[in-house]
């Protein structure tokens, strides 16, 4: 039983499953006509991202991704959507203006992604000698309140944005009798 020869294959497998889950979820979230399915796609995408974080040896981040994005954001969105619009609206035909804007944004997005990938590929990759911290509660607490204080505060904004987004999406569906 030589397990070392199987290790790279397993790593590639785990990585591909995580990436495919994230990308598939993102595609479902964008392409689906039913808004609840879009939210499910978002949840799937977050699960894939959590897998990637775990793959990159950041289990805490992976678990936080699940706890906050699936457990809080997705649940909030589904809840708001469900309260506002129990029945499916008929999908509207795309207007010409929105198609033009979408194609412009798509081209810009592809260019941006290409540029970023190029920059990342050209920069020398520095592998950290060891893990950044021992993963203890004290280390995480210190890091959250010093180095990553800004990001920590931003997480609360994400929840606010999720609630606002849910309102913005759901509000037109509710009209007075």
């Amino acid at each position: 039983m030589n397990s070392s020869s199987a290790a790279p294959f397993l790593l590639t497998l785990v990585f591909s499953v995580a990436v495919l889950t994230a990308m598939g979820g993102a595609l479902i979230a964008v392409l689906s006509h039913r808004i609840i399915r879009s939210v499910c796609g978002l949840a799937l995408c977050c699960l894939g991202l959590a897998g990637l974080y775990y793959f990159l040896r950041s289990p805490f981040l992976a678990l936080m991704e699940i706890l906050i994005y699936i457990g809080a954001v997705c649940v909030t969105i589904v809840f708001a959507v469900m309260l506002a619009e129990p029945d499916e609206p008929v999908p509207r035909a795309h207007r010409v203006g929105s198609l033009v804007w979408a194609s412009v944004l798509a081209v810009a997005g592809v260019l941006l992604f290409w540029g970023l990938t190029r920059l990342t590929a050209q920069a020398p990759v520095t592998v950290p000698a060891s893990r950044a911290s021992d993963g203890s509660v004290a280390a995480i607490g210190l890091a959250l309140l010093t180095t990553y204080g800004m990001a920590f505060e931003m997480i609360s904004l994400v929840l606010l944005v999720a609630i606002l987004g849910a309102l913005a999406v759901a509000r037109p569906g509710r009209h007075k009798p």
Binding site: P59, F60, M64, I66, G71, C74, V75, V78
Partner: peptide, 26 residues
């Protein structure tokens, strides 16, 4: 053995709500 066992139980526990809610909605 996971260093964050406690968070893990709560993280995966939170998916339960989403699933029951989807069953109700679907």
């Amino acid at each position: 053995k996971v260093n964050f066992g406690l968070v893990m139980v709560f993280a995966f526990g939170s998916i339960n709500v989403m699933a029951i809610m989807l069953s109700g909605w679907a």
